[in-house]
Simulated assay, not measured.
Amino acid sequence: MPANIITTDDLREFKMELLDDLKELLSNQNSGKLKKYLKSSEVMDMLQMSIGTLQNLRVNGTLPYTKIGGIIYYDAEDIQNVMTQNRIHNKIE
Rank of each mutant, 00 (worst) to 15 (best):
M1R: 12
N4R: 15
N4S: 13
N4Y: 15
N4H: 11
I5R: 15
I5A: 07
I6A: 05
I6S: 04
I6W: 05
T7W: 06
T7G: 09
T8I: 08
D9K: 15
D9W: 04
D10R: 08
L11K: 13
E13G: 07
F14H: 13
F14E: 15
F14D: 12
F14A: 10
K15H: 14
M16I: 15
E17V: 10
E17W: 08
L18G: 11
L19N: 10
L19D: 15
D20N: 15
D20Y: 10
D21I: 14
K23I: 12
K23C: 11
K23V: 15
L25W: 07
L26A: 09
L26K: 15
L26I: 14
S27R: 14
S27P: 06
N28Q: 10
N28G: 09
N28W: 06
N28F: 04
N30V: 11
S31E: 15
S31L: 13
G32C: 04
K33W: 09
K33H: 14
K36Y: 06
Y37K: 10
Y37V: 04
L38N: 01
K39H: 04
S40D: 01
S40Y: 00
S40N: 03
S40H: 01
E42H: 00
V43E: 01
M44A: 02
D45V: 01
M46D: 03
M46I: 08
M46F: 05
M46A: 05
L47T: 00
Q48A: 12
M49L: 07
M49F: 04
G52E: 10
G52K: 08
G52T: 09
L54S: 00
L54R: 01
Q55P: 04
N56T: 07
N56C: 09
L57A: 03
V59Q: 15
G61E: 06
G61Y: 04
G61L: 06
T62L: 13
T62M: 05
L63C: 04
P64E: 03
P64Q: 06
Y65Q: 02
Y65H: 06
T66N: 12
K67Y: 03
I68A: 07
G69D: 08
G70H: 04
I71H: 12
I71C: 08
I72W: 01
I72Y: 02
D75P: 01
E77N: 08
D78C: 06
D78Y: 02
I79C: 01
I79W: 02
Q80A: 10
Q80I: 03
N81Q: 15
T84I: 09
T84D: 11
T84Q: 14
N86K: 14
I88H: 07
I88M: 08
H89R: 13
N90S: 13
E93F: 09
E93S: 09
